[in-house]
Computed example of a mutant assay.
Amino acid sequence: MHKIVRNAATLSLLLCLFASSAQAQSEGAPKFAFVRELQKAVRADNRTWLADHIQYPLRHHGRIATIIRNRSDFVRNYATIVSDKLRAAILAQEPDKVFENWQGVMVGDGSHNMWLRQSGEGDNLRYEIVTINDMNDTP
């Protein structure tokens, strides 16, 4: 009898763990989908998509720290903002293994990355790029 109760308890625990894991994955689904779309845009050099998914003003830390004030500034300066090293770091990121803390979600590596945050409310909840770091290019 104790064996049956112990097996039932083990089964119940496993079901709870599976359910919480599935819930965490479904809650992360929009974030992971955004990372995949971000990678697709970076791979294609789709300046328009990237510009449309930025929260302005955008902080850019590269050779010098700059503020990108608006969409046209980003599109015009795209080649200096998105370097080859940054592109490689973004494309190497596994979408479901991003770093996340109270500041947001980091896509890339420690020196070359884009930071994302959720903005909006309800049905308008979305991710936006808030910071771009390209630090190894500093003199």
Rank of each mutant, 00 (worst) to 15 (best):
M1A: 13
K3E: 15
K3N: 14
I4Y: 09
N7C: 04
A9S: 10
T10A: 13
L11A: 13
S12V: 11
S12R: 10
S12I: 13
L15M: 14
C16A: 14
C16R: 13
L17W: 14
L17D: 12
S20H: 12
S21L: 15
A24H: 15
Q25A: 15
E27Y: 11
A29D: 11
P30E: 03
K31L: 13
F32Y: 15
F32S: 09
V35K: 02
V35G: 02
R36E: 07
E37K: 11
Q39I: 00
K40S: 09
K40D: 07
K40C: 05
A41D: 03
A41N: 03
A41H: 02
V42S: 01
V42N: 01
D45Q: 13
N46S: 08
R47V: 08
T48S: 12
W49G: 03
L50K: 01
A51C: 05
A51G: 12
Y56P: 05
Y56G: 04
Y56T: 04
Y56K: 03
P57E: 02
R59Q: 09
R59E: 09
H61L: 10
G62F: 02
G62Y: 05
R63M: 07
I64F: 10
T66E: 12
T66R: 14
T66S: 12
I67S: 12
R69P: 07
R71Y: 10
F74D: 07
F74P: 07
Y78H: 08
T80C: 08
T80D: 11
I81V: 15
S83R: 10
S83F: 07
S83K: 08
D84N: 04
A88I: 00
A89K: 01
A89L: 04
E94Y: 06
E94K: 15
P95Q: 06
P95A: 09
E100H: 05
N101P: 05
Q103D: 09
V105S: 00
V107K: 00
D109T: 03
D109H: 06
G110E: 10
S111D: 08
N113S: 07
N113F: 06
M114L: 07
M114D: 01
S119T: 11
S119M: 08
G120I: 04
D123C: 06
N124V: 08
L125I: 09
L125E: 10
R126H: 10
R126F: 02
R126E: 04
E128M: 05
I129V: 09
T131E: 10
T131P: 02
I132F: 03
N133K: 13
N133L: 11
N136L: 15
D137E: 14
